[in-house]
């Protein structure tokens, strides 16, 4: 019998990449390194109640001991983190995740002060998936009904004259099959389990110095749950968090992305690449999103240029890591 049993709550199914390749192995590792003194029960698919945006608060308040959730589900809550959501920011999940974790450790203490942060990480940069036609250039998105993953991308898509829709992930397949939406922006890691590639067979990927966009995830632990552990067990948790954990999770998401993309290839889907001059055109067209972000953040009293700079520098640092 374990001395400490913790509840880990998340929103995805138990067969998801996140649980199978990240959360479960992580929990097993913690259990093994604590010689069985820590045991972690994983509750998938919001089994303990609430909606995904509430997961962070459930951890903060100690309803659960740990949770893993999408940061963008609570817009306005982690303003500094949104630097990583800007268009054309991310590199691979590994690089961006490690950069983001270091950014969180140095810049985001205030935003994350109510929890014990295990790690912050991102997914592999997302691509576009279209139901009806190939998206080869900027203008192809004009008037298309596009499902946006978050507020930042909604702003970006609006600039591209797309008709932006937001709907919960589970509603997406039927909305796509019915033509309620034409295009969705997602990493292949989400495309595969939701079978989006069978509904939207025209993929558009971005090849340049940066990926198109990403989302960030927060894996956190309740402060009291952490503090009640004796020092040797705290060390077990510490050994399994921070930048190294971000690197591990990034690897998991990068590796899964490759396999997931292959499903779409095997399905005989078409792949378009935005590169070269067209890539620059997308990047230029979307700079107003970043400019607007800087303006808004400055209005809210942040030093936006410095934060953006820091985020970029950290990504470069881990690119050459």
């Amino acid at each position: 019998e374990a001395e400490y049993t913790f509840k880990l709550h998340h929103m995805l199914p138990p067969v998801s990449n996140a649980q199978v390749n990240f959360l479960q192995p992580w929990a097993d590792k913690v259990e093994a390194e604590s010689n069985g003194r820590i045991h972690i029960d994983i509750y998938p698919a919001m089994q303990l109640g609430g909606k995904p945006p509430q997961l962070f608060d459930q951890t903060r308040k100690g309803i659960v001991d740990m949770s893993w959730t999408v940061g963008g589900y609570t817009p306005g809550r982690f303003p500094k983190a949104t630097a990583f959501e800007l268009p054309f920011m991310p590199l691979s999940a590994r690089i961006t995740s490690m950069a983001m974790q270091e950014y969180a450790e140095t810049e985001m203490q205030d935003e994350l002060k109510d929890v014990h942060l295990l790690t912050l990480h991102t997914h592999f940069p997302g691509s576009l998936h279209s139901r009806t036609k190939d998206i080869k250039k900027l203008e192809d998105l004009d008037g298309m009904k596009v499902r946006s993953p978050n507020k930042m991308m909604a702003d970006a898509l609006n600039i591209l004259k797309a008709n932006t829709v937001f709907m919960p992930v589970p509603s997406m397949p039927s909305a796509l099959s019915k033509g309620v939406i034409d295009v969705t922006a997602l990493p292949f890691e989400v495309v595969k389990p939701m079978k989006i590639h069978e509904l939207a067979p025209h993929h558009t990927e971005f090849k340049g110095d940066r990926g198109f966009y990403t989302q960030f995830f927060i894996f956190s632990m309740n402060k009291k749950s952490y503090n009640k552990l004796p020092d040797d067990l705290k060390k077990v948790i510490d050994d399994n968090s921070g930048v190294p954990l971000a690197g591990f999770v990034g690897d998991v998401f990068d590796a899964y992305e490759i396999g997931a993309r292959k499903d779409a290839v095997d399905n005989g889907n078409t792949f378009n690449t935005i590169e070269g001059a067209e890539y620059d055109r997308w990047k230029d067209t979307l700079t107003p999103v970043t400019e607007q972000w800087i303006e808004d953040m400055n209005d809210d009293g942040y030093d936006a240029e410095r934060l953006l700079d820091k985020a970029k520098t950290l990504i470069e640092k881990y690119e050459n890591f």
Partner: peptide, 8 residues
């Protein structure tokens, strides 16, 4: 969604 089956 839970079992990653094809909804159609």
């Amino acid at each position: 969604v839970l079992t990653e089956q094809n909804i159609s």
